[in-house]
Design a protein around this nucleic acid. Structure first.
Length: 782
DNA sequence: GTATTATCTAAGTCT
DNA sequence: TAGATAATAC
């Protein structure tokens, strides 16, 4: 049975074969970690362990998918389908949907994303009458998140004297109350945030003995990837799950621990041997990914960290190219150099776009890179930043889906109750919200029975609310009987979203409409994929198409990295180093190697934080297979103004035998004249002048220029004197002209004289509703 | 109540 | 610089 093990080296094979008892695999970068994990799973199955008794947890969907695919290749599809492989979040979400009623949640609970959480917190802060500048929603959420991940409940938080003292000192004494209110409201809305998926899983295993026993017996073998990134909460869950059998295998690399900011505890891996005295430890130290140069450089950097497990990563690979260091006068120039270097690299090494990655410390750095790549027509893909599912128009439609599935979902309700505009504004919502809080009801309860409550709303508004609630209910009724795509399409049309976006003919509006169509296409694909998958499976052959609820479960935990288009993938990858963990590329550019950027200025005051930055740099270096380029700029725009930058200390930590020293620039490397970048031809060649140039009269100073623009606009306004007609006898079908919107045709009229409202279709800007007493219309014809 | 404009402020990493 | 929010015109 062991010929499939022959491809492994000796340590890998041992690590795979030791099936029982606690095992820790310390896997250096590029040492075949995923391979060991997948072979281990395969080996478990071939040794007779039932697939559904195996639980394998990763941090990203991508890693989970990859692992599943590779297991399928070894053991075949049928067995592999039943293994529980997934991210911590997705696996626990699955368990929690099964066990939800034990915790008092609906099984179709909503998963709040960060945006939802922040806006919910913001509401609470406002209700408490607190200052949003002191209690910044982002920071508050951060604090709540860290608390949850350290197993601190609101009650513990509030009763902990140390925590309270800390909050007093930072002038935020009511954080605990906000935390408590936030938890309560999420529960009331039938919603869990990302941390709740972990927190509630732990709660389930702690408080419900039946559930604990069930899952302890179900998951007889537990495997954890990227163990160095687990936090206290995840560790607690995993420990409980594995407590009976202790068949737990953790794989990790302390040198790649880069999530301490999220509560990851490097001690989990460093102290693991103490927790399990009979732990078997295997060290994978041979790197198969990178050249000797890259491995050597990475080792020389990580040596500077005090806190680490002993390990010696080495490689049999060729020495390879030295690491290049690019120095640029500005961030934009840095982008240009990198883009051109990629251009050369493709030609010289016979590589494709997708063989190149640009890695940076912060998302904000992507802009300069993007612009430069676009200028020379190199296709790229940005990972992270705002993902498809976070775009406004996509979130809007999804909010309707979420509301249909779980009407208690308050975030979704607030989002769509007045989009597209239907006359239910802020004042109305405030009244409903207040009443809901006072009566301890959900907003949906009030809205869906609006006639029964006296909220001091006008009859007109009540009827609008009634119509809205009726519409949502009509969707909910169809949930089970209609497939995801069918219902999604109905919702997009009958809510008016489709039309609203279609009518907007501006370039942004057009792309929004396209995004909406893309979302609908995505649901269609999802439906098709599902029926294929159902077909493969043996005994769960349901013919029913997936419902919208299934679709929402599928996308709630998706990130940008999961939405790759396989047909169009020859692109340069742009991402943060965090996002690059676990990936590899032939050629890697690490940009922005400057003090206060990388390492981040927030990290340089503590040794722990600085060591984490260094591990981050280590991760970046070890992504590369053949060649690393490092780059830094001497000036850079940050929060709007130009700042001077020093090269990063990490540059000096690389053993210089692995480096080609910075190229001394002889001038703008291409002949195209540079615009406004500060380059000057002097008598000793080109030089860069980053002080404001005093020579060369150019355009007037910015302030003056703005004034001139304003003046000319004002002048224009006066000239174009627009004479409006009396619109008393305006009729449907008339051609009209509006001062700003241009020519249009009246589609519809409603309301009495004073408040008469016209729906007009304008050729340039699309459909608008106008109040006639304000809008100045000129009647052109009948 | 809605749409446009002016002003403010923020950029650390992610499920 | 850009996105989010407040102010204000319609």
């Amino acid at each position: 049975m062991s010929n499939y093990l022959d491809v492994l080296n000796e340590v890998q094979r041992k690590a795979v074969s030791e099936l029982n008892g606690p095992v820790m695999i310390i896997a250096g970068a590029g040492s075949g970690k995923t391979r060991v994990l997948t072979y281990r799973i395969a080996h478990l199955i071939k040794s007779g362990v039932a697939p559904f008794n195996i639980l394998s947890l990763t941090f990203t969907n991508k890693a989970a998918r990859e692992m599943k695919e590779r297991v399928v290749n070894i053991v075949g599809g049928r067995d592999a389908q039943n293994i529980w492989i997934g991210t911590f979040h997705s696996v626990f979400a699955r368990v929690l949907r099964i066990e939800s009623e034990k915790l008092g949640y609906p099984s179709n609970f909503t998963i709040y994303d960060t945006q939802d959480s922040k806006s919910q917190i913001k509401l609470i802060i406002r209700e408490f009458g607190l200052d949003e500048k002191v209690y910044k929603p982002g920071l508050v959420l951060n604090r709540i998140s860290l608390s949850k991940n350290n197993l601190i409940t609101p009650e513990v938080y509030i009763n902990d004297m140390n925590v309270q003292k800390e909050d007093q000192q930072s002038a935020k004494p009511r954080l605990g109350e906000i935390y408590r209110a936030y938890v309560k409201r999420c529960f009331k809305a039938g919603a869990m945030d990302f941390d709740d998926l972990l927190f509630n899983m732990n709660y389930l295993l702690t408080e419900i003995p039946d559930a604990l026993h069930k899952y302890q017996h179900k998951f007889q073998y537990v495997l954890i990837d990227e163990f160095q990134d687990t936090n206290a909460l995840q560790y607690s869950i995993v420990k409980k799950l594995a407590a009976i059998n202790e068949n737990i295998c953790v794989v990790g690399d302390d040198a790649q621990s880069i999530y301490a900011f999220r509560g990851a505890n490097i001690q989990n891996i460093l102290n693991y041997q103490v927790e399990y005295p009979d732990l078997k430890v295997f060290r994978l130290e041979q790197n198969y990914r990178s050249t000797k140069t890259i491995v050597g450089a990475a080792n020389s950097v990580i040596q500077n960290n005090k806190q680490q497990l002993h390990k010696e990563v080495w490689t049999d690979n060729a020495k390879g190219d030295l690491i290049t260091v690019l120095k640029s006068p500005t961030d934009n120039e840095e982008g240009r150099q990198v883009a051109h270097s990629i251009f050369d690299s493709k030609a010289n090494r016979n590589l494709h776009n997708l063989d190149h990655a640009i890695l940076y410390r912060t998302n904000a750095q992507s802009r300069a890179m993007e612009e430069a790549l676009r200028k020379i027509n190199i296709p790229y893909k940005i990972y992270g930043g705002l993902s498809f599912y976070q775009r406004k128009e996509v979130k809007d439609l999804i909010a309707y889906f979420r509301l249909t599935v779980n009407s208690k979902d308050e975030e979704s309700l607030r989002r769509v109750i007045n989009y597209p505009a239907r006359g239910i504004g802020n004042r109305t919502m405030e009244k409903i919200s207040v009443a809901a809080n006072e009566g301890d009801r959900t907003m949906w309860e009030l809205i869906s029975n609006i006639g029964e409550y006296k909220l001091g709303l006008s009859a007109a508004v009540q009827s609008k609310i009634f119509d809205f609630a009726t519409m949502i209910k009509s969707f909910s009724v169809e949930l089970e009987s209609k497939g995801a795509y069918e219902l999604a399409d109905i919702i997009a049309t009958s809510t008016g979203i489709n039309k609203d976006l279609y009518d907007n003919k501006t370039p942004e509006g057009l792309s929004r409409y396209e995004n909406l169509q893309e979302l609908l296409n995505g649901i269609k694909e999802f439906t098709d994929r599902w029926s294929r998958k159902q077909g493969e499976e043996v005994d769960t052959a349901e013919d029913n198409p997936p419902t919208l609820a299934h679709f929402l479960e599928d996308i709630a935990l998706l990130t940008d990295a999961d939405t790759d288009d396989p047909n169009d993938n020859d692109r340069v990858s742009l991402m943060t180093i965090h996002a690059a963990k676990g990936l590899e590329f032939p050629v890697v550019y690490i940009v922005g190697l400057e003090e206060n950027l990388f390492p981040s200025q927030l990290s340089i005051n503590s040794r722990e934080d600085l060591e984490e930055e260094r591990r981050l740099f280590y991760v970046a270096l070890t992504r590369a297979q053949q060649k690393v380029h490092i780059s830094y700029a001497t000036t850079r725009y940050r929060w709007g103004n130009l700042v001077q930058c020093e090269p990063s200390r990490f540059l000096e930590e690389i053993d210089e035998t692995y480096l080609i020293q910075p190229e001394i620039l002889e001038g703008p490397p291409i002949s195209r004249p540079m615009r406004n970048t500060g380059w000057k031809k002097g008598n000793r060649g080109w030089s860069f002048n980053n002080k404001k140039s005093t020579d060369l009269p150019k355009s007037p100073p910015a302030g003056l220029r703005e004034n001139m623009v304003k003046l000319s606009k004002a002048a224009n306004k006066k000239v174009s004197k627009f004479e409006a007609d009396n619109t008393e006898d305006l009729q449907v079908g008339m051609a009209v002209e509006h001062e700003r919107f241009g020519l249009g045709k009246v589609l519809h009229l409603e309301g009495a004289q004073a408040n008469q409202k016209a729906t007009v279709f304008f050729t340039e800007v699309g459909q608008k509703q106008l109040l006639l007493k304000y809008a100045k219309l000129k009647i052109l014809s009948n």
